[in-house]
Each structure stands twice: as C-alpha cells, then as structure tokens.
Design a protein around this nucleic acid. Structure first.
Lengths: 152, 152
DNA sequence: ACCAAATACATGTATATACACCTAACATTA
DNA sequence: TAATGTTAGGTGTATATACATGTATTTGGT
C-alpha cells in the first residue's frame, strides 16, 4: 500500500518529508505485525528485544545499563521491562557482587525456550511477508543511515 | 552512525533483518528529534500530528474517526489526544448536529498559530539535518512501500 | 581516610499505545 | 414502528515512553 492511501494524505512538502512519514508509518506497521506474533507467546515487542539482547551474552549476565545501550528505542525503561520478564520467570535478577549498585540479569531456561520459539516465528514471518532482495535491503540500510548522518 | 554502533550489535540474520531493525531505530530517532523541537511549543508528536490533520480540513471540522484514519500510528487513542489539545485550548469539540454520535473537532486560532510556528521549526529541522536528494528520497519511499507490499 | 561528584538503578508522573468493553445514536428490516 | 444490529466515541487497564528525582554505592581528588 502506498503511503498516500495508508494515511489518506496527498500533500507532502517534499519527497524527503514523505520519506520521514513513510519511515514512521512503516515502523508502526512492522511493530504491529510483530506484536501479533509475539502475543501468542505472551510477550511484547520490547520484552522480546530484552530477551534477544540477553541471549547475546548468555549464559553470562548483563547489567541494566548494558541492556539499555542495546535497545532499539533508547529511552525504554529497562528496569520495568525486566520487572515483567521476572514476573513471568523468563529472567532472573541479582545484585552484582563486584559493583553493588548494579543489577545483573540472566535468562532462565524458560526464557531461552520462549525466546527461541518466538524468534523462529518472527523469522518465519519476515521470510514469508517481506519480499526484498539482498541488494534492495542493502540500499535501504544505506539510505536510512544517510538520513541519520548528523546523528550525535 | 551505522546501526551496528547505534544498537551495539553485529549479528543480523540477514540484510533484510537488519533493514527492519534499521527502520525501527530510524523511526525512534526521528521521533526523538521531533519531540525535542515540539517540546518548545508544549506539544507532543501525536498532538502535532492531530493538529496537522485538522489543518487539512480547516476551517471545517473533522470527526474522531476521520482523524484516526489519518494518524500515522493507527491505534492512537484520538479522544484522549484531543482531550489534551482541548485543555490547551488548541482545538474545540462539539457534538455533531447531523449525527449526534459524532464529536466534531476544529482548530482554534491559538491552535492554528501554534501549528504554523511549530511546523516551521520542524521543516527547518528537516532541511538542515536530513541530507537526502530527491532521487534518494524517492528510492527510499519505493523500498519502504515494497516492504509493506503484503499490507492488508 | 574523607568528602564531593559521578554512577546505577529504582521510582514517580504524564503521555501514548493497544485493546477490550460500554453506552448512545443511527440504520435496517421484519 | 419495534426489534436488532451497527457505528461513534468515550472509558478502563496493562504496558511502554520520556523524563525528573531519589537512594545506595563507587570513584576520585585532597
């Protein structure tokens, strides 16, 4: 679907302006699609993201700060997302012995299992629904990074 | 900044997978940048979006449903966003005389003024910070729409 | 060793997102 | 026109986002 239909608007100031709205809309669409899949596993997009990040260091623990630095949406409130994962027994939280200010978090076997299953479902979705060649994806990545050129 | 640095991760399953994360991250980045500007005008991104949509029909009113259909993030709770705009006297809400179920909303002079000023600031930001040629923006729009090809 | 500054994380508040549910008003059709 | 279904939008709840503030701990200068 063209952006014009999606947000019922035709008057964009420029192609660049349209592109910014298109990125916001496409991100919303991707999140919504992902959320539908993740719902079957009882987790949200952000919870999935934290599990994914923890898996990167597993079986080692990670502190809240390290997780936060890897989040896609950087202002996510990691302690509270971890609260919910802990309630579902997908992660465990402990005070670090080296630095007692730090809370270190690691996946439980239940967390690993749920992550693997939900990740497979997400990958399958991407393979089935997103028809983009490798070259097109590379091009897209380059253009997105060009938009963020002045990122500090 | 490359996505790899931004989210401190190197292992993407594919270029397509990287592209989806890149879209989510770029959208977050654009929203954050926009929020900084809009904060000076006392409104949020979604409130700005509603004002922008209302402007499209001004001086006519629009009902909640019409606004919702034009929102970028489609599950936005329009009645509550309108609540906040109404509190700030940027819009007025009335019951429709034609269909009494409908609430029709229109911009106040204060709302128009604030929209124009904030929109200028947003446009200036885009012009200064986003260095993308018309052709590149068109290419980007085409690629994003290709990702959403199977959108229903 | 002590005190000030910095750091890590928890917590509070306002807003937004996502979705379920409710009520009033309208539309349909028997 | 009464009964039924549909639609509009308001409201409740859980989660997330954005940001300010509080508290314990560590660090670094003297």
């Amino acid at each position: 679907m063209k952006l014009e239909q999606a947000i019922k608007s035709e008057n964009f100031k420029s192609e660049v302006h349209k592109a910014t709205l298109n990125i916001l809309y496409t991100a919303w669409w991707l999140k919504t699609q992902g959320a539908t899949i993740l719902k079957q596993y009882g987790i949200t997009h952000e919870q999935f993201n934290v599990l994914r990040i923890l898996k990167g260091k597993h079986p080692e623990s990670m502190c809240v700060r390290d997780i936060a630095g890897r989040m896609i949406e950087r202002n996510s409130n990691v302690p509270r997302i971890v609260d919910r994962l802990e309630l579902k027994k997908l992660v465990e939280r402990n005070q670090s012995q080296i630095d007692k200010r730090e809370t270190v978090i690691h996946l439980t076997p239940l967390g690993i299992d749920l992550l693997e299953r939900s990740r497979q479902a997400m990958d399958a979705y991407h393979e089935a629904e997103i028809i983009l060649s490798n070259e097109e994806a590379q091009q897209l990545n380059a253009l997105l990074e060009k938009i963020r050129l002045k990122e500090k």
